[in-house]
C-alpha cells in the first residue's frame, strides 16, 4: 500500500509536468493537442541523441544514475523540443488557426502525432533503450517502502518546476497575459495583448516542460518511441479532471491519476492499469464536467 502510493506519486509527478503543457494549450490555444505527448518523446530522444553523438559518459552524481552529461543534454533537448514545437506551429497550426472550425486543429495534431512518433522510430529504431546501464539499488526508507534515489530527484524537480510555473503565471506580466488570453482572446487583444506573442510563449513553456518530463520518464522507466502515445491518455485525463486551463488543477490531476493507476493494481489485474485514466476521466465527465478542482477559466 505505501509502496503503491509512493509509485503513484512518482508517476504522478511526470504526468503533472506533461499535463501542465497540455492544459495550457487547451486553455490558451483552445484545442486538444494530440501531439503534445510526442513532444515528450521527442525531448527524451533528443537528449539520448546528444549523449550518443558526443558519446558522453553517464558520470553519475552521487547516488543517482545520471550526472552532468544528461543534464546538459536535457538543456539542448529542451531547445530542440521548443524548436520543433514552434516549427510545427508555424508550418501547420498557425495556418489552420481561425481558418476553420477548431476541431481541424485537433485533427491536424492527430496527424502530427503520427508523424513525430514515426520520425523518432525512423531515426532511433523501435527498440526500448536506456540513458545508462547503471543499475540502481532501491533504498528502504520505511518497512515495505523502497524508493530509488532517481525517483526522489524526479519528484523534487517536478515539484520545483510546478511551483515555478505557478509563480510565473501569477506574478509576471506574461503570465497575466496568458491567463487573460485563456479567458478571452479577443478581449485580451483589445487590452493590447499580442496574441501571437502569447501563442509563442505557450509553445515555449509547453515544449520545455514536455522535454523535461520526457527525459524524466526515460530516466525512471525506459525510452520507447510509443511511450508518449501511451502517456497521452493519462495526460488528457489529468488536464480534464483538473479543469481545462487550470495549471494547479492539472498538477493535482496528474498526481491523482498516477496514484489511482498504481493503487488500482492492488485490486485489478495489472494489464488494465492503463485504462484507469480513461475510467476516472469518464466518471468525472459524467459527475462533474468542469473538473474536480475547478474555479477555473478557459472551459467552455
Amino acid at each position: 500500500m505505501p509502496q503503491a502510493l509512493a509509485d503513484g506519486l512518482l508517476t504522478g509527478a511526470i504526468y503533472a509536468l506533461g499535463a501542465i503543457g497540455l492544459t495550457l494549450t487547451m486553455g490558451i490555444l483552445r484545442f486538444a493537442n494530440f501531439a503534445h505527448a510526442e513532444m515528450m518523446t521527442w525531448g527524451a530522444y533528443m537528449a539520448l541523441g546528444v549523449l550518443t553523438v558526443f558519446s558522453l559518459p553517464s558520470a553519475p552524481l552521487g547516488p543517482l544514475t545520471f550526472g552532468w552529461p544528461l543534464i546538459g543534454a536535457t538543456v539542448i533537448a529542451i531547445l530542440l523540443t521548443i524548436g520543433l514545437a514552434l516549427l510545427i506551429d508555424k508550418l501547420i497550426f498557425a495556418r489552420l488557426r481561425g481558418r476553420v472550425n477548431h476541431l481541424t486543429l485537433v485533427f491536424a495534431s492527430f496527424g502530427v502525432a503520427l508523424l513525430v512518433r514515426n520520425l523518432i522510430s525512423l531515426i532511433f529504431g523501435g527498440e526500448a533503450t536506456y540513458y545508462t546501464n547503471t543499475l540502481q539499488m532501491a533504498i528502504r526508507i520505511a518497512p515495505g517502502l523502497r524508493v530509488m534515489p532517481d525517483q526522489v530527484f524526479i519528484f523534487c524537480l517536478s515539484i520545483v518546476l510546478v511551483i515555478a510555473i505557478h509563480l510565473f503565471l501569477q506574478k509576471t506580466r506574461l503570465g497575466l497575459a496568458m491567463r487573460a488570453v485563456s479567458e478571452s482572446p479577443t478581449l485580451a487583444e483589445i487590452n493590447g495583448i499580442s496574441l501571437s506573442r502569447v501563442v509563442k510563449w505557450v509553445w515555449i513553456i509547453g515544449g520545455a516542460l514536455a522535454a523535461i518530463a520526457g527525459v524524466l520518464y526515460g530516466v525512471s522507466v525506459q525510452l520507447r518511441p510509443e511511450f508518449g502515445f501511451q502517456l497521452l491518455l493519462p495526460l488528457f485525463a489529468a488536464a480534464i479532471i483538473g479543469g481545462v486551463g487550470n495549471v494547479v488543477g492539472a498538477v493535482l490531476g496528474g498526481f491523482f491519476i498516477g496514484i489511482v493507476e498504481s493503487m488500482s493494481v492492488l485490486v485489478i489485474p495489472a494489464g488494465y492499469k492503463l485504462a484507469m485514466p480513461f475510467i476516472v476521466m469518464l466518471l468525472v465527465l459524467y459527475v462533474r464536467p468542469t473538473g474536480l478542482f475547478s474555479g477555473t477559466s478557459g472551459g467552455k
Binding site: 497575466l176 487573460a180 487590452n191 495583448i193
Partner: peptide, 12 residues
C-alpha cells in the same frame, strides 16, 4: 476578465 481580479484587469 471575470476570472482575474480587478487589480489584474487594470494591470493587464
Amino acid at each position: 476578465f471575470a476570472s482575474l481580479t480587478v487589480d489584474e484587469n487594470l494591470k493587464l
